[in-house]
């Protein structure tokens, strides 16, 4: 990139690298230690908890964690909920962002700022009445309360990111397509969407994270253990197997793993999506 002028003094360079390496180690230690613990036998953990490479790799911890609870079931539930909400957020969010970025209509700016302001509203204010709505609809202990809200734009921050990105796509493209007789829907689907890969990946990852990580929602709405998601299943696991550190850690690794794999695939697009949407600064 364009940062050559900041290469600086050799002593400064050494300091920069020293701090980066130290920081990187501090940030990765809990990971490495979690993985190490997940692979240890109970006796080894008790006698030598700090050891990074286990004397003997006990892969059985994963097997036990997987079968001790209907973990596979939790995983399937979570994947299903997360997949639906992610797709719904990306599609509905980009439609809303299309409306905010490409059209003039009365009260547009007022509505846009209202949307931004909702980012500052603590969820606790709406939590109880929303719970009452779902209760009225007999949807407690179903997935509807977790899934349906994603169809309404998928959250203010995501819509904001998408709108910022759309604003950066030249309007001339739309106009040219319009002269060729394309409808608005066609412009959205054939012009904006194909050009928005990075921001779509970013929003998809944020939506995925929000749902995969969701703890309070399933805690409030799901009662039947078979319907549990991984996050509350893991909490249940902690209650029943809390003393077997190795197994709790193995279960945690299983919860973390899909996200990390996904991140490595999405990484390229993900960071570009944010860079290009830059907040406030420009």
């Amino acid at each position: 990139m364009k940062r050559t002028h900041r290469d600086g003094h050799p002593a400064t360079r050494t300091l920069v690298y020293g701090l980066l390496i130290l920081g990187a180690i501090l940030f990765t230690v809990p990971f490495v230690w979690t993985l190490a613990t997940a692979l240890k036998s109970g006796e080894e953990f008790a006698s030598d908890p700090g050891r990074v490479i286990p004397k003997q790799f006990v892969w059985d911890n994963f097997h036990k964690a997987w079968t001790a609870l209907p973990f596979a079931r939790f995983m399937v539930n979570t994947v299903m909920i997360t997949a639906i909400t992610t797709v719904a957020s990306v599609i509905s969010g980009s439609i809303v962002a299309y409306g905010f970025s490409r059209f003039e209509f009365r009260a547009r700016n007022f509505l846009f700022y209202t949307m931004l302001a909702t980012m500052m509203l603590p969820g606790q204010v709406t939590q109880i009445p929303v719970f009452m709505i779902w209760r009225q609809l007999h949807a407690i202990d179903t997935y509807y309360p977790l899934i349906v809200p994603a169809f309404f734009g998928g959250g203010a921050f995501n819509i904001f990111l998408l709108r910022q990105f759309f604003l950066g796509i030249p309007k001339e493209l739309d106009e040219a397509a319009m002269i060729d007789g394309a409808s608005y829907i066609k412009i959205y689907w054939r012009i904006l969407m194909p050009l928005s890969g990075p921001v779509l990946a970013t929003v998809a990852l944020f939506s995925y994270l929000g749902q995969w990580d969701n703890f309070e929602g399933p805690l409030i709405y799901l009662n039947t253990p078979e319907k549990y998601t991984v996050s509350i299943g893991l909490r249940m696991f902690q209650d029943s197997f809390g003393t077997n550190f190795e197994q709790v850690m193995a279960a945690s690794v299983l919860h973390i793993l899909p996200t990390i794999i996904l991140f490595f695939f999405a990484q390229r697009y993900f960071l570009r999506g944010i860079n290009l949407s830059g907040i406030g600064g420009r």
Binding site: V96, G99, T118, L121, V130
Partner: peptide, 20 residues
Amino acid sequence: PAFWGFLFISPWLIGFLIFT
């Protein structure tokens, strides 16, 4: 165009009214 703009943002607006 204003009609379409409003139509496209309506998912958010409806969600805002119901859930916020």
